[in-house]
Amino acid sequence: MTITENERDAVYKTIFSRRDVRREFKSTPIPKTVLERMLLAAHHAPSVGFMQPWDFILVSDQDTKAKIKQGFLQAHAEAAELFQGDRQEKYKTLKLEGIEEAPLGICVTCDRERTGPVVLGRTAKPEMDLFSSVCAIQNLWLAARAENIGLGWVSILHDQVLRDLLKIPDNIEIIAYLCIGYVEAFQDTPDLEKAGWLSRRPVESVIHHGVWQEKTIGE
């Protein structure tokens, strides 16, 4: 199957306009057919040994989301104490989730035992199944953007909160909690860059030729 020039450009546009969305969620529900397309795209991610270790728990109940939000607030307060001075004050001003605002939450998990103890391609790097599940999230993220739907990854949250609320078995790894929904608008610049937390590094600073080369920004 050949990708046309217009199709190629649409893929790049989707990649470059993807954002980690924390605000501006609308209450508009995601149509079932649209959600199914997005989850099917996630399910077509690459996976080590074709083991497809991911599962997706859909969370729409407001009471459950409120409890997840409480878990975020606890972890957020703990995280704030790790920063010092102006950095701490800046951290406290950042909007870092949309748990209750987004109409849908998705918890992505990884079943590391799905195809048995020995997995083709996981023998030397056992964490490859975890990476595969992250690939599914990236597929979901890009599919959401292609549908003009926002997605935000909430990483400031202890796994046990999700494990208890969503009844996730102990042998299942929790990879992510995602907030998903239509938004008022997509920002041109990532929130953290706009807030002055960090800037995007030049791509030249992360490319090495042949061997590792120590670099500083601006080289």
Rank of each mutant, 00 (worst) to 15 (best):
L35Y: 03
D86P: 00
A75L: 11
L35K: 08
P46A: 15
K125I: 15
E214D: 13
R87E: 12
L73A: 11
W153Q: 07
Q84K: 07
V118L: 11
N148G: 00
A79R: 05
H208P: 13
G150D: 04
I174E: 13
A136C: 12
K26P: 10
I156M: 12
R114N: 07
L58S: 08
V59L: 06
V161C: 08
G105W: 02
A45G: 12
I137K: 05
H158C: 01
Q84G: 00
R8V: 00
P126D: 07
R87C: 04
P117S: 14
R163S: 09
V134C: 15
V11Y: 08
L120C: 02
V118E: 06
D61Y: 05
A10V: 01
E101Q: 15
I149A: 02
I57M: 07
D86S: 07
Q138M: 10
L165R: 01
G196E: 06
H43L: 14
L96I: 04
Q70W: 00
L96D: 09
I99D: 05
A79Y: 05
F83C: 02
L165E: 09
K125A: 09
K69Q: 13
E100I: 09
A144M: 03
Q213C: 11
L35R: 04
A195Q: 06
S155Q: 04
L157P: 11
Q84Y: 12
E7K: 01
T189H: 00
A41R: 00
L82A: 07
V161K: 01
A80N: 06
K67P: 12
Y91A: 03
F131V: 15
P117T: 09
K215S: 15
G196K: 05
I106D: 12
Y12F: 15
H208Q: 08
